[in-house]
Every structure is written in C-alpha cells, then in structure tokens.
Amino acid sequence: MFTIEHEFDATVVTLVDDGDTPLREDVVISAFEDCVTLTQIDTRTDMPVSVTMSMSQLRDLQMALNLPEGSYRLKKDDA
C-alpha cells in the first residue's frame, strides 16, 4: 500500500509494508525540485534515518533497476 500527498514544495509518497510478517517501517519519499529524500525509522534506535539523492542519482537508480549486473556510465544524450 502507498499514499501520495502533494505539499507546497514536495510530493510525498509513503510506502507501507502491509505484507506478511516480519513487516518493515514505512518509507517516506519526498520529491523536491532538486533532490529526493527517503526516510525510514530505524527500529533499533527509534530514530529516523534519511538518504538524499540528487535527481541524477535517482535517474541512475531508475536505469539500474532494469539492467544486468555490471558497471555503467550514461552518456549525456541518454539523460
């Protein structure tokens, strides 16, 4: 399950792990104009852990999900 909310400066997607146990904490993805932030509560510390990716890194991740194992570099005209 997931939710989508449009805020003033970001689109926020929350991914809810509603599958079989063991369940993970929700992942909140905030998409801003120049970056994307993923946040999840660390159950060991009860503190949020965040990762911020540039739009270029997000594009590379999107491409990587559809490629076989290896090392790649996108050309400027591929972006």
Rank of each mutant, 00 (worst) to 15 (best):
F2H: 08
F2W: 09
F2E: 06
F2D: 03
I4V: 14
I4L: 05
I4G: 00
I4K: 07
E5W: 01
H6K: 12
H6A: 06
E7L: 15
E7W: 11
E7F: 10
D9G: 15
D9C: 07
A10S: 15
A10Q: 15
A10L: 07
A10N: 11
T11I: 13
T11D: 15
V12S: 05
V12W: 03
V13E: 04
T14A: 09
T14E: 06
T14I: 10
L15Y: 07
L15V: 14
D17F: 01
D17H: 01
D17S: 06
G19T: 08
D20A: 11
D20H: 05
P22M: 04
P22D: 08
P22K: 06
L23G: 00
L23R: 14
L23A: 08
R24S: 12
R24E: 07
R24N: 10
R24H: 12
R24C: 05
R24G: 02
E25G: 07
D26E: 13
V28C: 02
V28E: 10
I29L: 14
I29Q: 09
S30P: 01
A31H: 05
A31R: 12
F32I: 09
F32K: 14
F32S: 08
D34Y: 03
D34F: 04
C35T: 10
V36L: 13
V36Y: 13
T37A: 10
T37C: 12
T37Y: 02
L38F: 15
T39R: 12
T39W: 02
Q40V: 09
Q40S: 08
Q40T: 11
I41M: 12
D42S: 05
T43G: 00
T43P: 11
T45H: 00
D46S: 12
D46F: 03
M47Q: 14
P48W: 02
P48Y: 07
V49E: 02
V49W: 00
V49R: 03
S50F: 00
S50Y: 01
V51K: 10
V51M: 13
T52R: 15
T52V: 13
M53Q: 04
M53H: 05
S54M: 05
S54D: 03
M55G: 05
M55P: 00
S56V: 13
Q57C: 03
Q57D: 12
Q57E: 15
Q57L: 01
Q57T: 12
L58S: 14
L58D: 02
R59K: 06
R59N: 01
R59Q: 08
R59G: 00
R59I: 03
D60K: 07
L61T: 10
L61S: 09
L61F: 10
Q62D: 09
Q62A: 14
Q62H: 15
Q62G: 03
Q62C: 09
Q62F: 05
Q62W: 11
M63Q: 07
M63G: 00
A64K: 06
A64R: 08
N66F: 12
L67E: 06
L67Q: 12
G70M: 10
G70I: 07
G70L: 13
Y72S: 04
R73P: 00
L74A: 14
L74C: 11
L74E: 09
L74N: 09
L74V: 05
K75R: 15
K75Y: 11
K75E: 11
K76L: 11
D77Q: 10
D77W: 06
D78N: 13
D78C: 10
D78Y: 06
D78V: 02
A79D: 13
A79T: 03
